[in-house]
Design a binder for these strands. Structure first.
Lengths: 344, 344
DNA sequence: GTGAAAGCGCTAACAC
DNA sequence: GTGTTAGCGCTTTCAC
């Protein structure tokens, strides 16, 4: 099957290639009858513009790059997080005839920036969606912006500048979850923090403190344990929190993987969830609905966030006028089976 | 930052652009001293060839497409499966300066083939890795081969023709797992089948039957339940199997998601795993290690399979001589906590 | 409204 | 070994 080119279409429609180009690119100034004739020729020949030629001539690639922390760097990559971002970006791409290129990036490597440059120079994506925690790492962000590639950051934590970013209401929703636990009668609510390099996760901790205060509960350092977002670190924190002289009756983990680890640690000790211990997480990954009891958590609208990010990139007129400001997509509580009234 | 072109490099190195091209493409017939001079110029200008120009001129894109069943089509996409394939393909790509384009495809849609054509015509990937179950659907396979794009199929089930394919030893390893259960004293071993559209999964069922026979156990239709690969269908099958007058003491599910569903159904009924019921799955997704008790399963080397598939595509000389035959990457048992001796 | 001509940055074929 | 010359298929001036 030989490919039809713009010349074939032009010949069949009896117009110049420029006119075909106009129709394909939906430009103004084409008579309706001409447009129809060209459309017909396109359909008949099953013509589709060659991306490379288009890119070469126009300096656009119709490709979006999604860059995220390389899951191979982790022992047990859960993946649900990544899949959901991909789905969001893919929705935006599908709607605009873009394709998606994925590029995991291991920020621990010296040459992470070089690899990004290779991506940008060779493929020239029209824009890059950068996921947390890479989105808060100046080295990574600069590697991209230095090349002038339009960039949207997801959950970058605190940021300077008015570059467009898509975030969620980490702090507010975590305060809400903490108040929910307090409303169930819990007075000793522990918190398991996330990875240091992930700035946005710090807001979850702040939200937890807000929630305690709003509920009139004291904050205690003893009830805070440092995790690194992994299932294993959740297990370890669970062990240490449950070994306390007066253990907590509820544990709030900064993500679901750690919450699952905590549940596992409780299971091992024969502690019943939710009768003796309530556990909550953040993200609402697939696992949250598959473990038993199912996990009360906070649904982060990752796929919507990613979709909005990609959408902004795709619809940027080129002067960057759309790529400013902050887009807040709210998260919400998902109450399931892992939480219940505080034990008497 | 203005991009350096091949002309800039040629000028700086004092050679023609063709020589630069030769160096970049590692062709023969360049004097070592010349090569070095060019390399230096490349480094100095931080030159990287423009993919689009290269593609346009050479008809190669340095892009690999990974096409798989669209997870958005499922209520709870588990994703671990997809992530692992992506990781494998990405390893092969990274080693060869290729980038990866992902293209979920919903075979239930009428226009699935059209979307694939759009991908192929516009982007012109140098090859496509096609995952199961799409790899056993003639409509999808033909949509790709009709365009002449090199294709590697993963786990296509029975196939005609000698097109290169990467598979695992489903049947043999499932027989092995069944024998393992029998060796634990189980005599009533149930099987939960996978989705009809997924041909390779049928081999798992055949392996189960082989294993029964090899262990001298009778096959009974009553102990077979039809699932569709989803967690929910596993739960449903678990319910129905555990309601039998003489329920099985072990259940073998054709994938991990369903095994997790079965565990959940058992949990609900207060049936202890593994003391009263052994459960095993297939795939070894992340979940297998995160549920409690952890799941005994079969580790499918998805990422290796995908890597081999992409590697073959990338290193295909163009005449398709490498893209023949079948590559069998063996799976292996992962014995964990969800299996134990049959109850007395 | 439409078309002609000139590239975009690279590789391929063929000269030297 | 190295350089020259044509394109690859499209978009972009700028004419008409």
């Amino acid at each position: 099957m030989v490919k039809a080119t713009i010349d074939d279409v032009a010949k069949l429609a009896g117009v110049s290639i420029k006119t075909v180009s106009r129709v394909v690119n939906r430009e103004q100034n084409v008579r309706e009858s001409t447009r129809e004739r060209v459309q017909q020729a396109i359909a008949q020949l099953n013509y589709r513009p060659n991306l490379s030629a288009r890119n070469l001539a126009s300096q656009r690639s119709h490709l979006i790059g999604l860059v995220y922390d390389d899951p191979s760097a982790y022992e047990i990559p859960s993946g649900g997080f990544i899949i959901r971002m991909q789905q969001g970006v893919l929705r935006a791409c599908a709607a605009a005839d873009y394709e998606l290129l994925i590029h995991p990036c291991n920020y621990r490597h010296r040459n992470a920036g070089d690899k990004l440059h290779a991506l940008i120079d060779q493929v020239r994506p029209d824009g890059i969606v950068l996921a947390a925690p890479l989105s808060n790492m100046p080295r990574i962000v600069n590697a991209i912006t230095a090349k002038g590639t339009p960039l949207v950051r997801m959950s970058p934590g605190e940021v300077n500048g008015d570059q467009y970013k898509v975030v969620t209401n980490d702090r507010e929703v975590c305060a809400e979850m903490t108040r929910y636990l307090a409303s169930l009668g819990h007075r000793r609510i522990a918190f398991v923090t996330g990875h240091r390099s992930h700035k946005a996760i710090k807001y979850r901790f702040l939200g937890y403190k807000d929630g305690l205060e709003q509920s009139g509960l004291p904050f205690s350092k003893d009830l805070v344990c440092s995790g690194d977002n992994s299932f294993g670190s959740g297990e370890a924190c669970g062990d240490s929190l449950l070994s306390l002289d007066t253990p907590p009756t509820a544990v709030f983990a900064a993500n679901d993987d750690m919450a699952a680890g905590i549940m596992r640690a409780a299971d091992r000790r024969g502690i019943d969830i939710p009768d003796q211990l309530s556990v909550v997480g953040f993200d609402d990954i697939t696992l949250a609905r598959q473990i038993y009891p199912s996990l009360t958590t906070i649904r982060q609208p990752l796929s919507n966030m990613a979709e909005r990010a990609a959408h902004a990139l795709i619809n940027d007129p080129g002067d960057g006028s759309k790529l400013k400001g902050t887009d807040v997509v709210p998260s919400k509580l998902m109450i399931r089976e892992s939480t219940g009234p505080a034990p008497a």
